[in-house]
Amino acid sequence: MNTLKTGDTAPLFTLQNQFNETISLQGCLDKGPVLVYFYPKASTPGCTVQAQGLRDIKQQLDNLNITVLGISPDPVAKLQKFSDKQALNFHLLSDEDHAVADAFGVWGEKKFMGKTFDGIHRLSFIVGTEGKVTQFINKFKTKDHHEVILELFK
């Protein structure tokens, strides 16, 4: 796993969101910085808490012109159910073949409950308008991820 770091150029990508709309990183960068956060699986406890935190600070992020893109290997239909149930107000993107996760270096071996498998590591990146990673965020708890993000912009 060769994870992108601060200063690296973010790979441009285009994925479908929870409403089956096409969303591109470049289109979002035209409006300002982008928080690209990777999470393992929609509707699981940790992923739900993380998404709710971002939902609750959406206005503050909007005031800073920050677009939020949550990426998981879930299919569009599952993302829509997750979004609807949690009243999420930002894009959830489907990366079923984990090509974008691979490009960011967040797909790799994981261990959970004694089992080893490949999956998405819960990591976040702030991509600046020039397309470079300005912040690599790897130290946070799901319940305070949103606070860590806001703190970066104070």
Rank of each mutant, 00 (worst) to 15 (best):
G7H: 11
Q16D: 05
N17A: 08
N17Q: 09
E21I: 03
T22W: 01
I23H: 03
S24F: 06
L25R: 02
Q26L: 15
G27A: 12
L29Y: 06
D30P: 01
D30S: 15
D30Q: 13
K31G: 06
G32Q: 01
V36F: 01
V36G: 08
V36N: 06
F38G: 07
F38K: 05
Y39Q: 02
Y39V: 01
S43P: 00
C47P: 04
V49S: 12
Q50Y: 07
A51Q: 04
G53I: 07
G53S: 13
I57S: 02
K58S: 14
K58G: 09
Q60T: 12
L61D: 07
I66M: 08
T67E: 11
S72C: 02
K78H: 09
Q80H: 15
F82H: 09
D84A: 11
D84L: 14
K85L: 14
K85P: 06
A87W: 11
H91L: 12
S94G: 00
H98G: 00
H98L: 12
V100E: 10
A101Q: 07
A101K: 06
D102Y: 11
D102Q: 15
A103D: 08
F104D: 01
G105L: 11
W107N: 11
G108T: 09
E109P: 08
E109D: 10
E109H: 14
K110Y: 10
K111E: 13
M113C: 11
G114D: 08
T116M: 13
D118F: 14
G119A: 06
G119M: 00
I120L: 11
H121E: 12
R122G: 06
L123A: 11
F125H: 06
I126R: 04
I126G: 05
T129I: 15
G131M: 09
V133H: 01
F136D: 10
I137Q: 02
H146S: 14
E147G: 00
V148M: 01
E151P: 00
L152E: 02
F153A: 01
